[in-house]
Structures are given as structure tokens and as C-alpha cells.
Design a protein around this nucleic acid. Structure first.
Lengths: 257, 257
DNA sequence: TAAAATCATTGATATATATCAAATTTTTTA
DNA sequence: TAAAAAATTTGATATATATCAATGATTTTA
């Protein structure tokens, strides 16, 4: 619990300071071969709006606080708004009868629920839930459409965001379908280390269940793989911190699948 | 070979005449629980353009014919254009060292390669290949962006198409990760019957390899499942036609996974 | 048409991973 | 703090599915 703020602070830091260096990372190899759930760019949509548009958005927007674990929207419900994550951490996931599959994780400042912009379909195709206490703005879709009509840069941004989400989802799709458990877990750990914490030693906020939803396996398998990784000297878990001791070998495991 | 034209004609017919009835099919249950590769809407982008914009697009567009099996673009290559499929049938897929995973199948008239619209990333994250002889137009991305700047309806269309692709990909992602082989194959067969041919009896154009790429399993597994389905009286294969004899049971298998 | 290549089927086997179950540890609640 | 609940680990087992291998069928090529 004590680390949550560090976690978010870390996310922010990374997203603010390392945008340029990391932009080149979107290439065919990296993206379509890793099950990373995070997008790269932070999108500053407000700076694209003129005063009138900003007023319009503000008048059709509400701010809501969510407590850890609360659900932002639910698969199957009506979708009348777009979600902006201002603070916190959100996962989107598909839920079946028993299992969940995480599609993406969003860190501030990002828009989600964009697939509701598909015309003639106002139903959510996935759910969204906050990992930690979060601050969110909900913007009515009709307002979004209004701004799109007058502001090409804004439309461009939406297109860019959707394209990014499609690339991330496709990459995860491939990994979870083609790689086996050890490779998938290696992927997830490397994603956390390089993209989120930017350190090979990071606090373990996610539960085994979270890991299982991210990597598409059972909780027991997650546990067994952690034990194996520990015994092989690949990772160390201490004081709720996880450290990747041998990143090269981890990359190998991820690559080989 | 003799059936290919029927195949395409069928696709056209369906997409033209049944748009309204089928639109309601996009709901949470149907979409996120089936591995169908086809989108629903046919997008008529040309009618959205004024004369000037149409001229612009035409001046930055080339028409190309592709023969059966030829590759339209390749994962990892530079992406400078958007593809419009005018005639034929295209699959997009991610390729690893050995395996391929089909992301979507596109029938006319559709745009593909839209994820190249992600700014600062001009690399293809997947490949595209034609199933049958096809007619394609390539439009320069810079021209697309120019039209987006002036034409909100066009931007809306792009957003809609990307949203649809995201929903389809997510749904397939869930199915191929969560369902097991019999359920996935049932999904694929039902998709072909209801969405493509609109008949429980349809010509078998796809090879076992095609089925394996669609359903994320080995060719041998495809073959074994077909045999099992035949023995159980679920399907009949005769004269290169496949008939679903017991659609209700097939739905059950798809649902149960 | 014959030869070659590809595609499809079937069986035997291996193996990755889920499932079931029980024991521990950690966290939450009263 | 004690009790209850949840999360984690570990083992034994089952099973779905890939892999390997061999044969037959079909399509393509020369």
C-alpha cells in the first residue's frame, strides 16, 4: 500500500521524461512480439482545443473519483462517454464466465473507452476497473463528436490513439496465442521493468491474480513460474520487491517463447 | 477455383443487402465471444468527399492488381499508404518465425493498414496477403491526413473503422486465448456460415492451413476436429462443400468453448 | 501424362498447462 | 488481538494439444 504513490509517481516520471528516447521503440519487433500492456505516448488533448471547444468539453464533462478496485464501466452496458484518466491506473479487460483477460493498462493522462466511437454501436465490449484510487473525467460522446467536426488535430489524435491501441492489442494477441507460459511471464516482467518502473527492481503491487489476467494463465502457473525463476537465479523476491537479476536471460526466455 | 467468384459475389451480396438487419449483431455477447474475422459495415468513403478532396485523393492514389497469394504489405516494412480493397479478399496477419496468426479478413470495400495512421510510427505491425485475385488502391498517408484536416465526416469514418477493428481484434483475442480448439473451430465455421455465405452449406475455399491460422491451432488439429465433427454428425464435407448439419449444437460447442 | 510438390489424414507419443486438493502464509475483519 | 477470509505455494494428476512420423490424396509443374 505504501508503494502505490511511488508506483504512480514512477509512471508519471517515465511518461514525462522519456518520451523521446522511447518513441523509437515502436517497431515491428518490439511491439508485435511483447505482451506489454502500456502505450507509449501521453496525449495532451486539452492543448489542442481552442477556448470555445474547451468550454464545450468542460460543460459536458464530469470529474469522478474511484476507489481502488472500483469498476469504471462494464462490458455490455451502454457507452455514452469517453473516459479520461487524470490520476491513477486503470485496466481494461474482457470477462467471460470465470476468467478475465486484460487488454490494456492505462496510466495518466490517457483516454479510454474509445471503441465506443464506432457509430451505431453504443455498447461496451470490455470492462474497465481501477487498480488504485484514481481520478477520472467522463466526457459525453456527443461533445467529442462535436469537437471532431471542427478540430482536425483532435481527430488526428483520436485516430492516433485508436491506432496505438490496435497495435498494442494485436501484439498481445500474438504473444498470448503463440508464446508459452514462461515466455509470456518474462514478457510481462520485462514490460513492468522497462516501461513502468524503469528499473530491474520494482515493488510488487500486482497480485498473482493480476499477473494471471495479464499473461493468460492460471494463478497456480504464475506461482510455479515465479518459483522456477527464483530457483534459476533469474529473479529475487524480497520485501514485496521483485528484482530481475538476469535481464539478458529474461529477454532470451521472452524471445524464445 | 470455379467458386471463387461465387464467394466474392456472396460477400458483396451480404454486405450490400443485409446491413440493416445485421447491424444489431454488434453487441457484447456476439462480438467479444466469437473469433469472427469480418467487420460488418461497408464503408463508402468516396461519397464523403467533395470534388476537390476526391481529386486530391485520386492524384495520390494508384490502382494495383494482386494475384492470388501475393503479399500486399509486409510486417516490418515502411508504411506510407493506406490500402483500399475494391475487389477480392485480404487477410492481415502477424508472422513469427514459424506460425502466422490471422488478425482480420477484409472483403470489399474496406480500408486496411489504418494503424499506420499512428503518428511517428511508419512501420507495419502486421502483413497483408490476398486470398484470391484482388484489385486494390493505395492512397498516400499524407493525402489521407490532408483530407482529414478539412473533412470531419471522413475523420469520423476513420475513427469508426479503427474502433471496429479494435473490437474485432479484442474479441478474437479473447476467444483464441480462452476457448479451446473445438470451440474455436465451431466459431470459425459459424462465422463463415452466418456472415460470409449466409448459408449452412458453403464451398470450402480455405485450406487446412488457412483454418489453422484463423483458429490458432496446428493443421493436424484442424483435420482431427473436422473428422470428429463429421463422425458426430455435426458437419458434412462433400464435393468441396461444407455443410453444418446441426447449427444449434455447433453454437453450443462455440459457447462452451 | 508423369513427376513433383503440396495438402490432408491418422496414429503414437510427448509435453505444457490446467485442474483438484491440501497446507501455509498474509491480509482483512470483528 | 483473535478469528475469518483471502492469497499463495506445492504436489499429484488429468488432459488438451502439439509434435513426430508415415501414408494417401490432390494439385501443380515440367
Amino acid at each position: 500500500m505504501i508503494y502505490i504513490n511511488d508506483f504512480i509517481a514512477n509512471l508519471r516520471l517515465i511518461l514525462n521524461t522519456n518520451l523521446n528516447e522511447e518513441k523509437n521503440m515502436i517497431d515491428s519487433q518490439k511491439i508485435t512480439r511483447s505482451s506489454c500492456v502500456f502505450g507509449l505516448d501521453e496525449f495532451d488533448y486539452m492543448s489542442l482545443l481552442n477556448q470555445e471547444e474547451a468550454e464545450l468539453i468542460k460543460s459536458r464533462m464530469v470529474d469522478v473519483k474511484f476507489r481502488k478496485g472500483e469498476i469504471v464501466f462494464k462490458q455490455g452496458s451502454f457507452a455514452n462517454n469517453i473516459v479520461v484518466l487524470n490520476e491513477g491506473l486503470i485496466k481494461t479487460y474482457i470477462e467471460g464466465s470465470n476468467e478475465r483477460l486484460v487488454l490494456q493498462i492505462f496510466s495518466p493522462v490517457k483516454m479510454l473507452g474509445l471503441s465506443a466511437l464506432l457509430e451505431n454501436s453504443h455498447v461496451r465490449h470490455h470492462s474497465a476497473q481501477v487498480y488504485v484510487d484514481s481520478k477520472i473525467s467522463l466526457i459525453e460522446i456527443s461533445a467529442i463528436r462535436q469537437v471532431m467536426a471542427s478540430n482536425a488535430s483532435f481527430s488526428n489524435l483520436l485516430v492516433s490513439m485508436l491506432a496505438e491501441q490496435l497495435i498494442i492489442t494485436s501484439g498481445r494477441f500474438y504473444c498470448l496465442t503463440m508464446k508459452q507460459t514462461y515466455g509470456r511471464m518474462a514478457d510481462v516482467l520485462l514490460c513492468l521493468a522497462t516501461r513502468v518502473y524503469k528499473s530491474n527492481r520494482f515493488p510488487l503491487h500486482l497480485t498473482r491474480r493480476d499477473f494471471s489476467e495479464l499473461s493468460g494463465m492460471t494463478i497456480e502457473s504464475v506461482s510455479r513460474i515465479f518459483t522456477k525463476f527464483k530457483n534459476d537465479g533469474l529473479i529475487r523476491i524480497e520485501d514485496d520487491f521483485l528484482e530481475i537479476l538476469d535481464p539478458e536471460k529474461m529477454e532470451m526466455i521472452s524471445f524464445k517463447g
